[in-house]
């Protein structure tokens, strides 16, 4: 799980081009949107595509997205859970 979280952090910073953010320093519980990493709804679109591309996991609807996109922790749990199925 720790490796998965590391991959997610690197993906978010690299592919969403977050300037001045060190992936290693992102707290697992930091909110991804608004006051946390400062992502917005357009980043959410890219994040859905990135998760599918890098982890082969599809986020289908608002409920899944809302639960998964709370933090690095919730996103990692979501991906791990989907991969089991």
């Amino acid at each position: 799980m720790e490796e998965l979280k590391k991959q997610i952090k690197e993906m978010v910073v690299r592919d969403l081009k977050l300037q001045g953010v060190d992936p290693a320093k992102i707290d697992d519980n930091t909110p991804l949107f608004e006051e946390g990493l400062g992502l917005d709804s357009l980043d959410a679109v890219e994040l859905v595509v990135l998760v599918q591309k890098h982890f082969d996991v599809q986020i289908d609807d608002m409920d899944e997205g809302q639960a998964a996109f709370k933090s690095i922790n919730t996103l990692a749990e979501f991906i791990a859970e989907k991969r089991k199925k």
């Binding site: 709804s41 679109v45 859905v48 289908d60 608002m62 996109f69």
Partner: peptide
């Protein structure tokens, strides 16, 4: 797809396009 939901319906719209 309701645009007044979480992220303005962007997640469902993305999934549909995918």
């Amino acid at each position: 797809i309701k645009s007044n939901g979480f992220m303005g319906g962007m997640i469902e719209s993305t999934a549909a396009l995918q």
